[in-house]
């Protein structure tokens, strides 16, 4: 029993050791290794032939049009998905705010796309967006609207992908927002009613500020999630047509075997963007949003 204090002192370390080993091996070490790789012309077959190339990979990145194209696509995708999802999810949540049976069922229904694999979602929409026999064009035709090429035209492909992504995300975020709305104490609304506040005023001055922590959380999660979009693009368009839907991760993916050093440098760039976004968001968070 004399060792009680010694064991007490090391026990927390023993308890977190496996978790920390996992993080070190599969997150922190790879981050370092990724940075290391980005300075090399890496030879997968014969590592001895790998060559230190300083900033060549980075120089290449920032001078190549296809990288900017991928970055631009990712930005458009992110802004589109985040803005549309945010607005539509908020409206949906407000609409389904009251705790009734019907609302619960509808919420359960619109949530389904979120728990289904993105593979399934992509395949179903791929079929519906099929230009000659797909459901959507059949619908447009019967309404007398000219059909669209959807995923097969470089003009509409990215928008099509955004539609699918928003469709998949709304249910989840509406759910979180409506839970936040229900957490607002009814007495606040009652007080506002007694103060004779208009509906718009109640929404903008009371509801919105009170749920702003959740909205902010959603914003962060969605932005980071959108920046790493890959699956949906890989299955639906393969980055095409004409790189119209090539996103950053897809770009990295396409170089993963042919030019590892270059892919690594692109990966570092993605990491930096995500890090910067997170940092900026949390700086804003500490300044703006605290009602709880």
């Amino acid at each position: 029993m004399a060792n009680r204090t010694t064991w007490d002192r090391i026990r927390p370390y023993v308890m977190i050791a496996p978790a920390m080993a996992g993080i070190l091996t599969f997150v922190i070490y790879p981050m370092g290794y990724l940075i290391y790789l980005s300075f090399y012309k890496y030879n997968l077959m014969n590592r001895a032939k790998s060559k230190y190339v300083e900033f060549d990979n980075y120089k290449q990145i920032f001078t190549r049009g296809d990288f900017y194209k991928a970055l631009g696509n990712t930005l458009v995708y992110t802004v589109g998905v985040v803005a549309l999802t945010m607005i539509l999810a908020l409206l949906t949540a407000l609409w389904l705010k009251r705790n009734t049976r019907l609302n619960a069922i509808i919420q359960g229904g619109i949530f389904i796309p979120h728990i289904v694999s993105i593979v399934s979602v992509s395949l179903v929409w791929l079929w519906m967006m099929e230009p000659s026999h797909g459901m959507l064009n059949a619908l447009l035709r019967s309404l007398g609207i000219p059909p669209s090429h959807w995923l097969q035209s470089s003009r509409t492909a990215l928008v099509s992908v955004i539609i699918v992504a928003v469709w998949q995300a709304i249910g989840y975020y509406a759910l979180i927002i409506s839970a936040a709305l229900r957490n607002v104490s009814p007495s606040i609304y009652e007080a506002a009613a007694l103060d004779n506040a208009s509906r718009a005023k109640v929404f903008f001055r009371i509801t919105l500020p009170l749920i702003s922590p959740q909205l902010f959380f959603i914003l962060v999660i969605m932005t980071i999630g959108s920046f790493k979009v890959f699956d949906i693009v890989q299955i639906m368009t393969g980055g095409g047509p004409n790189d119209a839907t090539t996103t950053l991760v897809y770009y990295i993916y396409s170089y993963r075997t042919t030019n590892i050093g270059y892919a690594a440098a692109s990966g570092v760039t993605l990491m930096a963007i995500i890090g910067l976004l997170t940092f900026v968001y949390f700086r804003l968070l500490s300044r703006k949003v605290h009602y709880q």
Binding site: T25, Y33, L37, K228, G267
Partner: peptide, 21 residues
């Protein structure tokens, strides 16, 4: 903080080095 970092860093960033490892 390390745990927080692990939460933030997506697999899309680390997959190449992890594969090599």
């Amino acid at each position: 903080g390390m745990t927080l970092l692990a939460f933030m860093i997506p697999t899309q960033v680390t997959f190449i080095p992890v594969y090599l490892l």
